[in-house]
Design a protein around this nucleic acid. Structure first.
Length: 409
RNA sequence: CGGGGUAUAGUGCAAUGGCAGCACGAGUCCUUUGGGAGGAUUUAAUCUCGGUUCGAAUCCGAGUACCCCGACCA
């Protein structure tokens, strides 16, 4: 990508009203644009990051046996009436079509759609377990949106629903999903700061589990057990670790980036979601649901990984691997070399921009590797390499660098 | 939903009730190029509605939007 063509331009000043780091930097660096409170456009750089996260999650969900589908955002009232959530769910967006006077909801989650979908099919014990997921924009009428893309009215979410013949099988999958979730957060570079957290389980089980990432920008309070590397959500009013009984817990602020929830028959019952067992009897299907907020995850990554100058993307989710900067001397040939080697590169070939401004933009955008080509470096057929997360600058032979770049990340 | 704050050019900031200005951006020309360059020139704004006043960006009222705190959050 040529930086001269990249839409939009970076901003020199922090946006007037934004306090949270993710909002400040993502807006300034041109990853997102705020349309209104809690509703954002993902611009080319931001969309790259979102896609990287999406692919990490999709890959892991496929490994977990998930089949991907895409359900409608626009949903009929009756499904929500059936579960009682048309009235009980405050955050449900509802509206009336002014032609037919029919009422609709915009999907905040999809139990009300997936359950009747599966119920349309004759399911036998042989068809279970079944795992279905989607990655889709959700809508929630939040009373108060906040912190940039951390809590919005419209956001991207992965939701997987599992269907089982009995609770034991659901519990088994629930445990398996914990491993997949850990993999996802590790791959996104927030593994170290993300804790599996005991949370309230609603009316059907003792606990559900959240994945909480430690950050001051978070809105939840959790208590850490450092022995077990787990946490307890403050909503549980519990002063000891459920695993080891440890009472020496550390209070931290955190943001919920994902959760897993045993639904059991909460949604199977209202939609008559049953399967035929070996003996020919009809039994309720046991469900679980597993969510990850992708856009929130992107915001959490930015909250955790930044300095005064800008974002420091982990390689796995960075919009590009290399930020190639030319100063005075053309780096076009080397740009082509990098592209041939399949290395994602943003090439700052802008002619009328000073070196200082290029460096400032590079720090702001936060691509992991910065490579500079200038008079200084071309004399010896070398280029300069600097990591965004380090101050060290190395002069490296071009061919050697290509080899290194092919191996990292 | 309760409380607080803010609203001026594309962005960030000024302007005692008395000619709306600065910087950046964008356009043109010249000079510059290793940490947000210099000169010349052009461009572009007072959130909306009402009130007070000879006169309102400024005072008053209502509304709207955004940010923050709290409550809420399958």
């Amino acid at each position: 990508m040529l930086q001269s063509k990249l839409f939009p331009k970076t901003l020199r000043e922090d946006p007037r009203d934004e306090i949270s780091a993710n909002a400040k930097f993502l807006v300034r660096a041109g990853f997102v644009d705020k349309l209104m409170a809690g509703v954002y456009t993902y611009l080319p750089l931001g969309l790259q990051v979102l896609k990287k996260i999406e692919n990490i999650i999709r890959e892991e969900m496929n490994k977990a046996g998930g089949q991907e589908i895409l359900m409608p955002v626009l949903q009929p009232k009756e499904n929500w009436v059936k579960t009682g959530r048309w009235d009980s769910l405050d955050s449900l967006f509802k509206f009336v079509s002014h032609y037919s006077k029919t009422e609709f909801a915009l999907g905040p989650t999809h139990e009300e759609i997936i359950s009747p979908l599966v119920a349309k099919v004759s399911i036998s014990y042989k068809d279970l377990p079944l795992y279905i997921f989607q990655i889709q924009t959700k809508f929630r009428d939040e009373k108060r949106v906040k912190s940039g893309i951390l809590r919005g009215r419209e956001f991207l979410m992965k939701d997987l629903y599992s269907f089982h013949a009995d609770e034991k099988d659901m519990n088994k999958y629930y445990e398996k999903m914990k491993t997949h979730y850990k993999n996802i957060f590790d791959k996104c570079g927030i593994g170290e700061k993300t804790y599996i957290t005991f949370a309230s389980g609603g009316s059907f089980s003792k606990y559900s589990h959240e994945y909480q990432t430690i950050t001051e920008a978070g809105e939840d309070k959790i208590f850490l057990c450092e022995k077990c590397k787990i946490a307890i959500n403050s909503e549980l009013n519990q002063n000891a670790c459920p695993e080891c009984g440890n009472k020496d817990l550390k209070e931290k602020k955190a943001i919920e980036v994902g959760n897993i929830f045993p639904l059991k028959t909460k949604y199977s019952e209202p939609f008559g979601l049953k399967f035929t067992d070996k003996d020919g009897s009809q039994k309720d299907i046991i469900m679980g649901c597993y969510g990850i907020g992708l856009s929130r995850l992107m915001g959490a990554i930015a909250e955790i990984n930044h300095d005064k100058k800008g974002i420091i993307w982990p390689e796995s989710v960075a919009p590009f691997k290399v930020h190639l900067i030319e100063i005075g001397e053309s780096a076009k040939e080397f740009y082509k070399d990098l592209q041939k080697a399949n290395i994602e590169v943003l090439y700052d070939e802008r002619e009328d921009v000073t070196a200082g401004e290029k460096f400032a933009d590079a720090d702001l955008i936060g691509i992991p590797y910065r490579i500079v080509v200038s008079e200084k470096t071309t004399k010896d057929k070398k280029v300069e390499l600097k990591r965004r997360d380090s101050e060290k600058i190395k002069l490296i032979d071009k061919k050697e660098l290509l080899k290194i770049m092919e191996h990292v990340g």
